[in-house]
Each structure stands twice: as C-alpha cells, then as structure tokens.
C-alpha cells in the first residue's frame, strides 16, 4: 500500500486498512463459527427416530420435506399467515439482495446476476417491509413481546440498519461503485485497493460485518439448524431400521438384562 502524501489520503488509507481488517475478521468469524456449529450438530448423534409425523418414508421424501421447510416455510405457513408473509418478505428480499451483491465479488459478472440487478431495489424494499412487519408483531402482540429478549429487538434493528443504509448508499449518496468493487476484489485477491470514503457505505459495511460476527453466536443459527432438525430430516422407517447411536450401543454392551 502506498503511503499517502496528503492528510486526506492518509485518513482514507487508515479507513481502508481498518475496513479491510474488519471485513476479514467478520468473514473469518462467520465461516469458522458457523462451520464449528455445523460440525457440532453433525457430530451429535440422534439416538431415536423422532420425525414429526406424518413423515416421508424415503430419503428423497425427506429431501423434499426439508426443501419445503427451507424454501417455503411450510410449517410457519400452517401456524400463522401474517408471520409467514413477513418472514417470506424478509428472507426473499435478503436472498435477492445477497445474490445481487455478487456483482461486487465476481468479474466478469455472471449473466443472471446482471439480469436480477433491476429487482434490487424491490429486494431491499421487501426485506425492510418484512423486518418492519416482524418488528411490529414483536412489539404489538403481547405473546411475542413476552418472550422477546433485548437481543431479539437488536437483531431486527441491525437488519433494518443494513437495509436502510443500503438504500441510502444507492439512493441518497451515490457511491463510487467502480472503486468499491476494486476494493472488494482487492480483498479477495489480497491486493488491497483504497475504499471509497462515504459515511453511508461505511455504515453499511460496519453493520454487515457486525451481522456476520454475531451470526455464529446467536439465534441466526436457525439457518444451518433447520437442516439438522431431527423432526424434519428423519425418515419414517423406525420399524424397518435400527438406529443405534454409538453411546447407546455402548450402553447395550455394558449391561443387558436379556
């Protein structure tokens, strides 16, 4: 990195270094943290079959069941239509935004990533509207308010902050997207480039980093968790198959009454 010769540029490079380190830390925390958690989930045995019945009787059926749960929020739909709508709005909007942001990470930009760019603003709107809906429910419905901890509100505010600062970067104070992409690619290829200084962009990046950092330590673990939920991913085959966990097998060897 070049040493700046004017105070302004000097400040800029401190920011660049700070944010480069922040983003590296955030990404590393996210990847290592979530991997560790997933490892723990995968390693813990499921000694008894406990699918919520009726359940699929084949592996393929289970894949579809989990896919419906992940993609359509099937159970939530059974529970409460309003929560379902807000949750779908938020997650769909978030998904759209994440995919759209791929354009900052790849060069040349894939065809379909270009294609979805125009939907970006709607993605953001969907996401923010979903969060507002979920926040409203949490604040207004006595049952949900009762069970909410401060962290539950903070999480929504964090996501709301990410959404709103994202809008602001795009609409209020246009960022130099070309230099920003150069900065991102620079991070990816360990060839750092200056980060364009824009308070809104920095806010957006700070909040996203924060989200990545808290992810493995928070209820955001529901995302990997749902794939490991025994009530959803167990096949209904207990009469046909034994499912002896290692510790249960040890129990059998240790002392059998028969």
């Amino acid at each position: 990195m070049q040493v700046a010769d004017t105070p302004r540029l000097y400040v800029m490079s401190v920011i660049t270094v700070t944010y480069a380190l922040l983003l590296y830390t955030a990404m590393a925390t996210f990847v290592v943290g979530v991997s560790y958690r997933v490892f723990m989930y995968a390693r813990a045995p499921a000694p008894l079959r406990i699918p919520t019945m009726p359940a699929p009787m084949t592996r393929t059926g289970v894949v579809f069941r989990v896919a419906r749960e992940v993609g359509l929020f099937e159970s939530l739909f059974k529970s409460n239509k309003w929560t379902w709508i807000f949750a779908v709005m938020f997650h769909l909007g978030l998904l759209l935004e994440v995919l759209r942001h791929l354009r900052f990470f790849i060069q040349p930009i894939w065809f379909w990533v270009v294609l979805i760019q125009p939907f970006g603003v709607y993605g953001g709107m969907l996401m923010v509207a979903g969060i507002v809906g979920l926040l409203g429910r949490r604040l207004l419905l006595a049952r949900v308010r009762y069970l909410s901890d401060p962290s539950d509100y903070l999480m929504l505010f964090l996501l709301l902050g990410i959404g709103l600062s994202g809008f602001a970067v795009r609409l209020v104070d246009h960022t130099d997207i070309v230099s920003f992409k150069a900065f991102v690619l620079g991070l990816l290829y360990f060839h750092w480039r200056p980060l364009p200084v824009n308070p809104l962009l920095l806010t957006h990046l700070t909040l996203v980093s924060l989200l990545l950092i808290v992810f493995p330590f928070s209820k955001l673990l529901h995302a990997p968790g749902v794939f490991f939920s025994p009530t959803r991913n167990h096949v209904d085959d207990a009469r046909e198959q034994r499912h002896l966990a290692p510790w249960a097998a040890q129990l059998e060897r240790g002392g059998s009454e028969v």
């Binding site: 949900v144 069970l147 209820k219 529901h222």
Partner: peptide, 10 residues
C-alpha cells in the same frame, strides 16, 4: 440454538 422467538408456537 435454533429458536428465533417468532411466536409461531405461542
């Protein structure tokens, strides 16, 4: 870990 306190079960 997984509960997000969404209230679906309440």
């Amino acid at each position: 870990d997984a509960c997000v306190k969404c209230g679906a079960c309440t």
